[in-house]
Simulated assay, not measured.
Amino acid sequence: MDLLLWRHAEAVDGTPDHTRELTERGQKQARRVAAWLQEHRPKRLAILCSPTVRTRQTAAAFSDEFEVVNALGPDGNVAGLLSATGWPDSSGAVLVVGHQPALGRMAALLLSGSEADWTIKKGSLWWFTNRVRDGETQTVLRAVISPDFV
């Protein structure tokens, strides 16, 4: 299984939180990462998105075909991410467009074996895969893409 974690791009400050839109810079960030993802996308990619405006705008820079999942909202957690994505047992690939701190905690769990307060930069994408080698399940970090470098 491939699991891609994409933090929403830069958004305007303010309230209510769920209606915050991307800034002009955020729109550019989303387009840059979306262009990279278009070139490298895994096959059979399902896209799951938080219900906030900024995450839906980020996802829309890549595709109009995504599923909004309430459990991926700003108050989401690693358990919700695991449940929504089916990691590590699902087949194919899942792209999650979501928020801190859940995405960073998920990345920490996948790479270190325990949740920790890691930060995924706004607009950045982390791509994980899993495999079995010599009877041992391994998590592999395939790529980390920052909008500043694509």
Rank of each mutant, 00 (worst) to 15 (best):
E39F: 08
R41L: 12
R44W: 05
R44G: 09
R44Q: 11
R44C: 08
L48A: 11
L48D: 00
C49M: 11
S50Y: 02
P51L: 04
T52E: 06
T52S: 15
V53R: 13
V53F: 02
R54L: 01
R54N: 05
R56T: 03
T58Q: 07
T58R: 07
A60N: 11
A60Q: 14
A61V: 06
A61F: 01
A61N: 02
A61I: 01
A61K: 00
A61T: 10
F62T: 00
F62S: 01
F62K: 02
S63D: 08
F66P: 00
F66L: 04
E67Q: 14
E67N: 06
E67H: 10
V68D: 11
V68K: 08
V68F: 08
V69L: 10
N70L: 02
L72F: 06
L72T: 06
L72Q: 14
L72M: 11
L72V: 04
G73A: 08
P74W: 04
G76K: 01
G76A: 01
G76M: 06
G76D: 01
N77G: 15
V78L: 09
G80P: 09
G80V: 03
L81S: 02
S83V: 02
A84S: 12
A84I: 10
A84Q: 10
T85H: 10
T85E: 06
T85N: 11
G86Q: 12
W87T: 02
P88E: 00
D89M: 11
S90I: 07
S90M: 09
S91Y: 09
G92C: 08
G92W: 14
V94T: 14
V94M: 11
V96E: 06
V97E: 03
V97N: 05
V97S: 04
G98R: 00
Q100L: 13
P101K: 00
P101E: 08
L103W: 01
L103D: 00
G104D: 04
R105E: 14
R105M: 13
A108H: 05
L109W: 08
L110Y: 07
L111Y: 03
G113H: 07
G113F: 09
S114F: 15
E115W: 02
E115C: 08
D117F: 11
W118E: 04
T119P: 05
T119M: 10
I120H: 06
K121S: 14
K122C: 09
K122H: 13
K122W: 00
K122I: 00
G123N: 10
L125C: 07
W126V: 15
W127H: 14
W127S: 08
W127P: 07
N130E: 07
R131A: 13
R131Q: 13
V132A: 10
V132M: 12
D134L: 13
D134K: 14
E136N: 08
E136S: 10
E136R: 10
E136M: 14
T137P: 12
T137R: 15
T139G: 02
T139P: 01
L141W: 04
L141C: 13
A143Y: 08
V144R: 08
I145C: 04
S146C: 09
